[in-house]
Design a protein around this nucleic acid. Sequence first.
DNA 1: CAGTGGTCTAGACCACAGT
DNA 2: CTGTGGTCTAGACCACTGT
Lengths: 248, 248
Amino acid sequence: MHPLSVDRRSSIPLYCQIRQKLLAEIESGRAPAGSLLPSEQEIARQTGVSRMTARQTLKSLCRMGVTVSRRGKGTFVARAKLDKNFRQVRSFTEEMKALGLKPRSRILSLKLVLPPVEARQALHIEPSVKVFNLRRLRLANGVPMSIESSFLPERLYPDFERAFHRGMSLYEMLENRYGVRMEIADEVVEADLARAEDAELLRVAPGSPVFQFTRISYLLDGRAAEYVESVYRGDRYRIVNRLSRVEH
Amino acid sequence: MHPLSVDRRSSIPLYCQIRQKLLAEIESGRAPAGSLLPSEQEIARQTGVSRMTARQTLKSLCRMGVTVSRRGKGTFVARAKLDKNFRQVRSFTEEMKALGLKPRSRILSLKLVLPPVEARQALHIEPSVKVFNLRRLRLANGVPMSIESSFLPERLYPDFERAFHRGMSLYEMLENRYGVRMEIADEVVEADLARAEDAELLRVAPGSPVFQFTRISYLLDGRAAEYVESVYRGDRYRIVNRLSRVEH
DNA sequence: CAGTGGTCTAGACCACAGT
DNA sequence: CTGTGGTCTAGACCACTGT
């Protein structure tokens, strides 16, 4: 294990600097799965930070799923980190890039519509109020991956229909143009069979296995700002998750 | 919002006491989604704890997905907490109880076998070494939910075949009898169609949508201690997840 | 016993948001 | 400007693990 050190003139928080060094040790294989990381005391001694700061480093790694800590024993390296993080709000674009794939989208339709009842309930919208419905086909390296149907309340996104163009990142645009930032999202995943029209777009046989995602995104003030239904190809997509024994 | 207080004679950590009170406010509806919780300073003032302890309370709620914190703004209540937590290592029994369902199991088979190649690779076992294979049908309120096939290395669990009986919790037994505790697990979920023999056990039509779970559980020292393949009925099971904007 | 992480204190300075 | 959460310090006592 390389000796640890920090740069106190840097604007990067000390615990982040130390975390980066420890992550480098782990990713390089110098700290393999099951091995013991330096203790809080030891990190504090080597770097000159206080024990609370050293502790913050180790807790952070623990929450990332990279390590496991046990009182009286120490902090141990867990298995190699997984490529997909199921816990974080991410756009399709971000997710595909993280997997090393080239994302692309095709807009299937963009209309102002009366929302289906599920979207209306999720968005707490009165009957007869219209919302924007954006349907897109999502591709990775040119291969169809999913169909995404977003419902966006009109009052939150005035003039959306004209402002949104192909190739734009929806989340970036909502944040930059409307100052709307999704802070948290609830997602439900179901296993289903591809319906004929979806199958055609996804280029799979009708009745093929698919994931059905339903997502409701919320703002800081608790308002629902997006309702999304997506169909993912079961043969090209998998959910990966790391579980911890304890609730942090 | 009720005034906060703590009992310093209690053995429950102060931040947990405060967290319980805040959770009660949220669950009762007195602190609805989008409302502002007391600030760190305010909690410290009301309870007499230090600001760092008050802070620990709010960070903990944030990590549980109950709140969202923003510098300069405060800590806001997120939507009602979801019933299933996809992040925590849980047995089928624990999970069903959390959903208010009555779990039951039927042992389909328990044999010492040469493991399939996937299990062998996951468990890092040499060819020709045998492992225990426990196959169980899982039921909730009497309705078949899933088929679970666990592969357990013989050397970790001597005499397992004779010690394990129906009705026992596998995880409890592994911990109590063998001192083996799964600290972390990696899980992969795929969408698939029910094969004929699984469909019969699950009482669904062949070709029905199912979730295919693959789980590898690890000990503190990084050793793989369990490889599990499960098939869940797609019509009775759904994955629920809460996503946060930030990586904690 | 010494070493580990878990909790806690009473301060400090900072970046950011809203006035 | 005040108030918020984010980072950080230099101590403290505790529960748990190993020898």
